[in-house]
Design a protein around this nucleic acid. Sequence first.
RNA 1: GGUGGAAUGGCCGAGAGGCGAGGCAAGGGACUGCAAAUCCCUGUACACGGGUUCAAAUCCCGUUUCCACCUCCA
Length: 464
Amino acid sequence: MRLYDSAARAVREFTPLEPGKVSMYVCGATVQSSPHVGHIRSGVAFDVLLRWFRVLGYDVTLVRNVTDIDDKILAKEQSENRPWWAVAAHYEREFQTAYRILGCTPPTVEPRATGHITQMVTLMETLIERGHAYVADSDVYFDVRSFPEYGKLSGQKIDDLLPAADSAADSRKKDPRDFALWKSVKPGEPSWPTPWGDGRPGWHLECSAMAEAYLGKAFDIHGGGLDLVFPHHENEVAQSKASGSDFANFWLHNAWVTMSGEKMSKSLGNSLIVSEVVKRVRPIELRWYLAGAHYRSNLEFGDAALQESAVAFQRIENFVRRAAEIAGDVSGGDLPPAFVAAMNDDMNVPAGLAVLHEAVTAGNTMLGKGASKNDIATSLADIRSMLDVLGVDPLSDMWAGDSSGSSEELTSVVEHFVQERIASRQAAKAAKDFGTADAIRDELRNLGIALEDGAEGVRWTLEK
RNA sequence: GGUGGAAUGGCCGAGAGGCGAGGCAAGGGACUGCAAAUCCCUGUACACGGGUUCAAAUCCCGUUUCCACCUCCA
């Protein structure tokens, strides 16, 4: 398995620190607004990685944090007229819903920043002791000049950085690039006690503290969006390494979902909010779309592309459902070597998709030729295994029932009704009364039911 | 100013010195009472200008255009 390591700026062979186990820390959401497709792309990308590690036989521990205290969350107290903790809890639930309906495997643990103040205080004590952090009034700052490697991850030199506008005038800092580990309390804001006074954590400190709390001083992979490289991840490295940790062995960063070449941001309105997008395509189709691009490639989001992608997925889904009608609920197939090679090559999902499409074409050919149940079962099982890596197997527990109705009883009634109409139409066809036959088909189509005449009989499906 | 990324056929999207990944759309064909679904065939693409090489989309030099980060962001 080879992965692109942002820190090395190269593809490296992945070897876990502990044989058979993979530990991953992925930066999760700052819960201050509704999740959009860009957020969820990150979730899907790392979920595919997690699934692939499991295929390879690794026991994966995934930590994905929730940043539930932050300037923007506090700012929403006013605009949403509810306490900051209610704002955070509300959006955290929205994120969890989005991850769930997109089929993302729940993390091993999903720690909240506010639950790990103790660990942050300990980390600050260590940094102060070691001379990497200092107290100014009740703020605590990291001293970037004290850490020679500062800037290495992002390729920045301290002297080339534009000093933060709001901190240029802050004479309490030794260097304008020094960043806050801890912010002293301001009137009306929440705070926690520390040896240096009451206050609240800076954004970067929480990830260092929580990564160590759950994964220890060294772990395999740290992931997140490309924008986090600087300053967030750079600062995490500084905090953790300066405190004596080895920290992450690999740094993985997913690229953007963009909109007409522009980075998606919260100001673009509601059209990209996950809950809105899944009204236009089914969640499984959105996942297919997001997972289909290479995780390090920009994904230009567009409605036409989304619809087209959904059509492509339906071809695959059709095969799976038709094959399952013949071969049953078979799974646990073999992954084609070319698919495995693609995934092992820095998760080259698009190349894997080519293998999948070819397998589906071969499978459809079998169905058309009336191949043996055994052959169809093998083909179906293999294809389902590939789909499962991407988390889009339509027959999996996650997605089964997605288009077959909510209640078994209702499904049974519809089945009988449709079969009765199909029988009438077959009778009309047998009598060469094609006018009546077509009328029945049109009538069903108006109800959203599509018919397909095949050698094995007539199939019906709900129209997408 | 500093750092990093990108430009591939109508569209999406891999590849990274030598047989045109794959998908969608389109055209043709098979099947079909007609549809639908499915299968088969067709289409000679790599921003521009130089260079290296028997051979370049791929390597080198230069140019253009676009994007991101350096401030909260997946």
